[in-house]
Design a protein around this nucleic acid. Structure first.
Lengths: 186, 186
DNA sequence: ACCTGAACACCGTTCAAGT
DNA sequence: ACCTGAACACCGTTCAAGT
């Protein structure tokens, strides 16, 4: 039985979860699969697209957004859900951020929230708002995960965790501001 | 005349600006300085702390925040200034984000904005708000720079640039939301 | 079709030895 | 004090050759 693209991505996700992005090398993925590194390139174009596939796996865990829900609840709910999914996979915020920018991801995590905002303002502004929320969440979780990383490496003497209140405050502020600007415009 | 720590950082900044973070290796820095890679470790503990020093150079270009200015103007002004500084150095958003999390930076870019907010709410909430704004800016500029990176690598057919309106909208929304929440509390 | 072996051009870091 | 030479243990990627 030969290898499969999904198995390659599976192995990559496992390494990410267990050892972090720094240990996610092509050679390590190959080792886990009992194969030589060169073999991976039959199933995957390069490391960059493998990482995009990993990011897609993470984003696939997102709950679907109810477009007809109350906007404030829909937006804050999505932000919290995104943070939950990211915190479930080590170093995933940096990974997802670069993967999304690479244009190699299948998933578009913005679609749902942009649709919610688009019910109250022009599509372009809705997109801006959705991306702002995405950036805030990615930036926030990236800091959480990087602090955890450096704390584990011993180069930092800060106790990670306990960012729930800070995150909630940040998201509440941005969502309130976004919705306030829409009602002004419509 | 022997090497100097500042010269090492200078060379690193130059490589970052001209070739990007992917080409910023210890060996490359050494080459630019006409020295062998091992020599750098006399002036710098490791690559991580060199990157932190580079991040400090970038952050040093920030204008000082007028704590007594009108809050909305002070916060949005700082956000735009931070974006200006980041866009002046290739790939700097990712660099600064991880360097700040590493705890090896001298600079604390939050101090000014946190002080502004602290005039209207408790210190902890002011810190949350300042960090939210920092994360939004870092996330936004990171996307801009990563898209530019992948576009240059040919793996993306999107034209970079033209994000001023999106950024302004995002910052305005967050700052409005943050200040609205403070007045509710005080 | 799918994988190995082996190479190419790189990394960060250490450290004896030189001056 | 400051640097070289040389090594160690890695990288991503390619590609002839095997099956």
């Amino acid at each position: 039985m030969s290898l499969d693209r999904d198995e390659v991505v599976d192995a990559a996700v496992r390494i990410l979860d267990d050892y972090g992005l720094g240990d996610l090398s092509m050679r390590r993925v190959a080792d886990v699969l009992g194969v030589k590194a060169g073999a991976l390139y039959w199933h995957v174009a390069n490391k960059q697209s493998l990482l995009a596939a990993v990011a897609d796996r993470v984003l696939a865990e997102l709950a679907v957004v109810d477009v007809d829900a109350e906007p404030h609840q829909a937006l804050t709910g999505w932000a919290h859900d995104l943070r939950r999914v990211l915190l479930a996979h080590r170093d995933s915020a940096d990974l997802v951020a670069t993967a999304l920018a690479s244009g190699l991801c299948q998933h578009d995590p913005l679609a749902g929230v942009a649709a919610v905002l688009a019910r109250h303002e022009p599509a372009e502004r809705a997109d801006w708002g959705a991306r702002a929320l995405l950036h805030l969440v990615l930036g926030h979780v990236a800091e959480e995960q990087n602090v955890a990383l450096f704390a584990q490496l011993g180069s930092l003497d800060v106790v990670p965790g306990g960012q729930d209140a800070a995150f909630t405050h940040a998201v509440t502020a941005l969502v309130s501001g976004l919705l306030a600007l829409t009602t002004l415009k419509e």
